[in-house]
């Protein structure tokens, strides 16, 4: 499938109306137009997430491209029973980004390296030009999830953040925090349970 000049594959209205599950099904059969619709829907979320993890724009763009390429290659392995498409895609993104973080951890770091959170904040969109309805919905979603995370007891949040953002294994977290491994596992389990309850009570579920 050639990409016409201008970067548009010629999305038909019917494609835009299709669900994520239908689109990844078609993409798995080799239809790049279906993947393009998914890219337009989620590239910004995936890129922001990758940037927050790796803290480097170029690297985050590489992760973004690789995540969508793999979703196209492995689309037939996606199962809607196991979760939503975006959850699956973000999980691929997370694995790729964490691999990069782990590789980088083994290399000496530049003293002036910025915190990934600050890098993302510096390049974040102002919201200008975006769909207002989308922005409002995303803003509310962001606030709710961030609020639920903030409500977690600090040790539980810390265990979740060290794992999720820094790619540490439970054993590494236990060593870093000098806590028993069982304590770390319990903190993660309780943290996720509370998060699920908090978000569930708000009816938070991705389509």
């Amino acid at each position: 499938m050639a990409m016409p000049a201008g970067g548009e594959l010629g999305q038909s209205p019917s494609f835009i109306e299709l669900s994520d599950v239908d689109l990844i099904g078609r993409a798995a059969e080799g239809d790049a137009r279906a993947l393009e619709v998914l890219y337009d829907r989620y590239s910004s979320v995936v890129f922001s997430f990758a940037l927050r993890l790796v803290g480097d724009r170029q690297l985050a763009e590489e992760v973004l491209q690789e995540a969508f390429f793999r979703s196209w290659q492995q689309g037939s392995a996606f199962s809607a029973k196991r979760g939503t498409f975006i959850t699956w895609l973000l999980s691929i993104t997370h694995n790729l980004a964490i691999d990069e973080i782990r590789k980088r951890r083994r290399r000496p770091q530049k003293a002036e390296s910025e915190e990934p959170e600050a890098v993302l904040a510096a390049v974040a969109d102002t919201g200008a030009g975006a769909d207002v309805e989308d922005e409002v919905w995303l803003g509310a979603l962001r606030e709710t999830i961030a609020g639920a995370l903030d409500q977690l007891p600090a040790p539980q949040r810390e265990a979740i953040e060290l794992a999720y953002y820094q790619g540490l294994t439970q054993r590494e977290i236990a060593e870093t925090l000098q806590e028993p491994l069982g304590t770390i596992k319990t903190r993660m389990r309780l943290g996720l349970q509370k998060l699920r309850e908090a978000l569930g009570s708000d009816g938070m579920e991705l389509a």
Binding site: V123, A124, R142, I145, L199
Partner: peptide, 15 residues
Amino acid sequence: RTVGLIPFTMPRATP
């Protein structure tokens, strides 16, 4: 599903 919501807390950036 729960963990998959965490990325939505990030400010949005455009590639």
